[in-house]
Simulated assay, not measured.
Amino acid sequence: MHGLRSAVSGDRVDVLSLEGVARDIVVRWYLLPLGAVLGFAAGLIHLSIAEPKYTATVTLAPVLQEGSSGSRLEGLGRLGSLGSLAGLGGAFGRSGMEFRKFFEVAKSRTLADRLVANKPLATRLFHQEWDQSAARWRPPDGFVPAVKGWLANSFGIDALAWQPPDGSRMQQLLRRRLAIVEDPDSPFIRLNFEGRDRDLSLQLLLTIVDQTDSLLRHAALDRSSKRIAFIEAQIPFQPSSDLQKAFATELAEQQRTRIFAASAAPFAAEPLTPATVSSRPTWPIPLISLGVGTGLGLMLAAIAAAWLGARRRRVPEPLAANS
């Protein structure tokens, strides 16, 4: 019993000391390169089995709906100092507000419903769930979907039950894969979409930009048309010339908005340059995969060395007092 140290008495327990752990790792140093090699190999395996993803990107600028080109340049200068979507309203007036709305609508359920209604696009995006011969949606194949289906059927977990692609699922996909990138030093906003299919990612990004702008355009047309009808009905009943002049000014503004929205030009946002897609996968990143794998291998090897050392030094339970 002379070699036994009591943790209750406050004495240092060598098994748990940092000095003892470090000594165990040094003594079993050969486990570290073994762990690094195994971790590096795990990183290589991850790179070989991970499905590559490509990133499509487009940089957007607000579309000027009022004033001259000179006022637009002035607005861009002010916006550059503001450095976020929050400053767009002040820098561009109504144009800035439509630009802000653009990025809200881009991830909205309304846009998602439009995208999933585009059957050629939706069937490519959810190709694992589309039965081409039967022309209908079906549960995807694979181990994970099968387990989810079994859990849903056996335990009534509705959240795991398969549902055909709809607006809700499309919106979830947009929230995961569509990124809005703001630069504090630039008045422009970048949209990134990450997908497994290089061509489809670019096509979907272009469709998102086009359909989002279309939604805002039609909303502005409907809004201005209703306001024009209201103003035209109210002008004859205004008691003073000042009120009639104010109504006439607003009428002209609404008519100009309707004309602008009815044109074929971009309404809320326009690309500065054509959209592009990465020529090589942006995920997985080889350096990260190999680095993380090697680091985890080293960490696990160090833990194994410390555990083996602690196990070797473990003292058996004290015998009875009469022994």
Rank of each mutant, 00 (worst) to 15 (best):
K107P: 13
G293H: 00
P318S: 06
G43K: 01
R175F: 12
L202V: 02
V105I: 08
I303T: 02
A91F: 07
G89C: 06
A219L: 05
G167S: 07
D199K: 11
T276M: 06
A56E: 05
L82Y: 08
A86N: 15
R114E: 05
D141K: 12
L174A: 01
A269C: 10
L205H: 10
L125H: 04
A134I: 03
P281I: 00
L111M: 01
R94G: 10
N192A: 11
E129Y: 11
D242Q: 13
T282G: 00
R177F: 13
E182R: 12
R12C: 09
A91M: 09
L205G: 06
E129C: 05
P120W: 00
K148Y: 06
A22C: 03
Q255Y: 14
T294S: 05
L296N: 06
R94E: 12
S278W: 07
A135W: 14
L79N: 02
F155C: 07
G43I: 02
L308I: 02
V26Q: 04
R5F: 10
R217S: 01
I288V: 09
A61Y: 14
D11R: 10
L121G: 00
P316Y: 01
A306S: 07
P140M: 03
T282P: 06
A301R: 03
V315E: 08
P33K: 11
L178Y: 04
A122W: 01
E19N: 05
V105D: 04
L32V: 09
P165W: 03
A306R: 01
G87D: 13
F230G: 08
I157H: 04
A106H: 07
L85T: 15
F193K: 15
A310Y: 08
F267N: 02
G291H: 00
F103V: 13
K53R: 08
K119H: 14
A91Q: 04
I189E: 07
P164D: 00
L44T: 15
R312G: 10
T59N: 13
D210Y: 12
R190Y: 14
F188S: 02
A86P: 11
A321K: 12
A112L: 05
A219M: 09
I231E: 01
L73I: 12
I228R: 04
R256L: 07
L251P: 07
E250I: 06
A146Y: 05
L287T: 09
Q254P: 14
V15H: 13
D242M: 15
N192V: 09
D141T: 15
N322I: 13
G167Q: 09
G149F: 02
L191E: 05
R258D: 10
S48C: 02
L121K: 00
I25K: 03
K226E: 05
E19H: 08
T57S: 15
A229C: 01
D113Q: 01
D210W: 08
S68Y: 09
I49F: 12
I288K: 13
R313V: 14
F237G: 08
R114G: 08
